[in-house]
Structure formats: C-alpha cells, structure tokens
Design a protein around this nucleic acid. Sequence first.
RNA 1: CGGGAUGUGGCCCAGUCUGGUAGGGCACUGCGUUCGGGACGCAGGGGUCGCGCGUUCAAAUCGCGCCAUCCCGACCA
Length: 545
Amino acid sequence: MIRKLAGGVYSYLPLGYRTIRKIENIIREEMNRAGAQEIFMPAVQPAELWQESGRWDKYGKELLRFRDRHNRDYCFGPTHEEVVTDIVRNEIQTYRQLPKNLYQIQTKFRDEIRPRFGVMRSREFIMKDAYSFDVDEEAAEKSYNVMFEAYERIFRRCGMIFRAVEADTGAIGGSYSHEFLVTADSGEDAMVYCTSCNYAANLEKAEVAAPEEKPVPEQDMLPAEEVHTPDVRTIEEVSAFIGVSPTDIVKTLIFNADGKTVAILVRGDEDINETKLKNYLGAGSLEMAADDEIMKVTGSPRGFAGPRGIRCSLIADYSIMNMKNFVVGANREDYHVKNCNLGRDVAIPAYADLRTVRKGDRCPRCGGEISFARGIEVGHVFKLGTKYSTAMNAAFLDRDGKEKLMIMGCYGIGVSRIAAAAIEQSHDDDGIVWPMSLAPFQVIITAVNMGDDELSQAAENIYNELITEGLEALFDDRDERAGVKFKDADLLGIPLRITVGAKRLAEGNVEVRFRKTGEVRVIPLSEATGFIRSTVDEETRKIMA
RNA sequence: CGGGAUGUGGCCCAGUCUGGUAGGGCACUGCGUUCGGGACGCAGGGGUCGCGCGUUCAAAUCGCGCCAUCCCGACCA
C-alpha cells in the first residue's frame, strides 16, 4: 500500500492511494457542504511572506528552506497561513465579500527531527487545510463552530472513534483550539476527560481546578528554623535528609522567560507544565535558568533556592496553597528552612494553575471524576484571531467605512494520517478491517480455480455486473491457490468477498463473506449484485447513524 | 545533537569472533503434479558483501575514515 523512499517520505501504491482518495473525497464533500471553497496553493513559498509574518525566524529547523538559482530564499510549505492571507488581502476589499473559507488538499513538508510509525508521523504528508476570514469575533466564532461540526461529520464518515479535546495553540498561535483525537492506546497524544460531564482536553492543556483557600491558623504554625543541609539539593535528597515527605516540601524552580527571570513554587511531588507556564506568562520562549542567573536571584548555587527574599518575580502553583510547616530552600548554600508557612514567612503575589493534571484530580468543570486515554491527532481547529491579519495587514472596509482587520481561523486534517489511524483502530490477526467508506474496494471477487473455464467466466460476469452497477469491485483473477487468495483478501481488508467456487456454482449460488465478522451468506448468482449493492448502502448509512 | 544497533541477490537472515572458491529461507522463471484458508517435486536465473583507504600471498571477515537506515532520548504540529 505504501513504500518508503527516504526517511519520512513515502510513495502511495494503487491500493493505498485509493484509500487516500476516498478520505479526500469525504473531506471535500463535507467542506463544500459547510460552505468552504477549494483552492490549490503552491507547495513552494517565498521567504518574504514568512519574514512578513515573522515566522521565518520563529519556525525553526522544521521548516525546510532552500535557494533557487537566483539565490532567493524559499521554503517547502509546512502550512499555508501566509499564502492564503496574502491571497485574501489582495482579493477582499469589503465586508460584502466576507465571510470566506478557503481550503486545499496539499502535500506538506515538516522536517521532523524524528519521523516514526510510518505514515503516522512522516515528514512529507498530505493535509487538508482550511482558513476562514470573518468581519468580527461573533462571525469568526460561527465559522469555527461550522468547521467543528464539519469535522465531526468527516471523522464519523471515516468510521473512526474519536473525541474532540481542548488543546494548546502551539506554534500556529491564536486564542483557542480543539484537537480531534482518534482513540488508540498506541497514540502519541495523551488526553484527559471527565466521566460525568463533557470536559475533555489534551494533557498539556487540561486544567487543574483552583482549590479553596484555607488559611492555616497561627497557633498551628511551628517556629521557622534554618537547617544545615550540606550538598542536599534534590527533592529526594531533602526528603531523605530532613525526614519529611515530598508533599511537605515546596520546590522552587527558576525559569528564564523571554530573558526575564521568574521563580515558580510547586509542591515537591508535582511537576511544572511548561506549556501552561508559558501561556500564563505570555512568553515566547521559556527555559530553565542558567546557574549564574540562579546565583544572581538567590545568592546561592543551584539546589537551595527558596521563596524567602528571592530577587525576582514569584508565582505559585495551586498545589502549595494550603500547605503548612513546609520545607523550602534557604537561598543560602547548604541550608534549607523548616516549618515555613504562607503569610507569616512567604507572601505569594499570585497563584496559578501550572502543573500537569494527574490521577486523582477532579474535573475542573464539574468536580467529577477524570480519566486518562491516548489518541492519535487527526485534526486540529484553531481560532487564530488577528495574528496573521495584523502582521500582514489583511484588512477590509466595514459597513461604516472604517478599515478593520479580518478575524481568522485555521483548520487542519491529516489525510495520510487518517489512513494510518484507521488501520491502527481497525485490524485483527489476519490484517486490515477497512470501514466501507475508506476501503480501497468495496468488494473482491475470488475465483477459487481460474483453471476452470465455467467458473472463471462466472466470476468475470459478476465482476462486470458489479462494475456496471457502479460498485467498486476488485477481481482476483490470479492463477493462485484458493488459500493464497483468501489470505490476501483478508490482509487487504476489503469489507466484502464474493467467493465463486465449483460446488456452490453448480447449485447456482455464490458465497458472500463479511471481512469484519467472518459471517458467510449463500446467495443465488442472479441476486449477487443486488445483495452487494444493498449491503454497501446499508453499511454507508450505518456509519452516519 | 547525545546513547545503542544494523548494512550480504527483490525481501528476511546466516557466515565476520578464528581471513582461504558467497550460503539458506521466501520471492522469481520453466516443466510436471496439486487445487475452498499461505502445496510439492525437479531444473534454472539473479549478489561491486553500504562506500573509500589501508594491512595481507589472500578481506564479507582485520584496522581507519565516511555514508545510510533503525531503535532510545532531547525536540515538536
């Protein structure tokens, strides 16, 4: 079905490509139904556009760059916000021409550090990307919802079990987004969902509810005490040396966000979610602070940082809100402080949700129980806002004659990845089990013995009938033993198989076998085509129900 | 970019340690038998042993360098 040409670069052979075409057509139908218009943009894009949006420098090494013979810079498009925004700003002048939603199905290239799992995470891949342009927030929201619903229809028609989850906007940028994940244990993305309400989010985005603040009464506070902790730096070491649980230690992590130093407090057994922190700070870049920076704000080497007297801004995760008599670093080499308390010893200017959700947390919406699952991301919808229209000045004249920026949204679907995800989600020991809508062929005709003229003629007649009826049929006319043909048909995952054999044929019958269930039905020769027609129609209908 | 492994007919691999005429299985071609869940017999075709340099009478095998691929990590729509 597919063959690798180079790392993360694949050819689609006849059967694989038929499935790709099926997926593309489902997407086309649903996008058109949702009011989007298909276009086709260049895969190769000039550097100027990317410099205009600012992403030429920001996108990093994933962007494949090269020069032409005139030494001009180009890239192979990993996405098309710049190109489509350029088209729209040139073509659209007035609110009368809006809203617009343009999409394309294109080969993209992202120079992944490590492509893996075949076509699941390749460098060159086929993607449908759509871009919406609206006059105001309200209209943009509507466009977003229309796309959201179109996506649900698309994935349902592809026969997939999926879930839409709230997601981080990442490098594309924008105000909010949803990922569509196909549930699969082998999936690369972790998600969290509530078992009582419909809350579902990507793990890096999933919120932790703010706890209720319960100040510790003065009389419960033990006197703070500095203790000598020579060469004791990590949470484990501190915990073992002082003899307290990690849940009684407050960890102080120093980060560098866009060049500014910031200290984050979190309970000793928790980890900071850097995506959340980055978003909270509105930072472009975020990394752990260097040793000299730590020395500057704490006056001590790495391993003894604490909130008391620290010389940089301070933010605390909710996890420390109701702790009492806890241990922190003393900002002095080889010392920690015991029985530290909030209010008395440490003033917290701001609390925030900065850690990753874990088992036992409650749903941030309804307080219900949350559960974890893994999935494969097959689609992503973003509300972009004016990020690109600002950078590239995509404006129009509104009803009142004033110039305004277009509100954008962008919507991607990994076409080649859907094929991989469908196989991942639906296979057995004998091979693929395609849903009717994605199968390269709906039915395969297996002639048990091609050496038998009567039999092979009967099989060919059925094939011609099916084709005439407009069904997608594959005729296995190879001169192979029956067992070989059966195994191959199973491996390919064709949903229906007509077996033409001598015994049944003598009775005027053929067998129809269902790949998914293994069920076999004996059907009179004359009714075979009709039976296949109605089965195909029924399967297609069932998928949408 | 770090750590590990592997490069031998189209595919999977043995042979490398201990240098001495390149092998097996699958696939392919021909003939015969077989023929409803991956048949069998006989006869064939096909390999610069990843590339380069070196050691040696002699290199798939030993040494050095390079390249490619895969796995693990950091990274990431």
